[in-house]
Amino acid sequence: MGMFQDIVSWILLTGGGFFVLVGGIGVLRMPNLYTRMHAASVTDTMGAALVLGGIMVQAGPSLAAIKLAAILLFLLITSPTSSYALAHSALLAGIQPDAGRAADPEDHP
């Protein structure tokens, strides 16, 4: 059991570290604000979930695991809210997302 637990949490932690790093590189490489936000959201969802999940497996069923789950739930609820607020206020400030438009008028199923 201990061996198995170690392997699972090792895999989760490695994956989490990888996704966190990818998000950091993406934030540096992307050309404009809105594309950078996509890269940041990778670290907020996959990175956080995998890292906290890995620690949770290591902690086993205890008070610490419940606290970690609460932190994860809180991060997953607040991060889209704050990035929506960021995107919306950037849009209101007149920063244009230079991109092709794809609008469908009425023929939405």
Partner: peptide, 14 residues
């Protein structure tokens, strides 16, 4: 809206 933003690669603007 939150689900769209939570999924990496898509972002709700307004």
């Amino acid at each position: 809206g939150n689900s769209i933003t939570l999924t990496p690669g898509t972002l709700t603007l307004s």
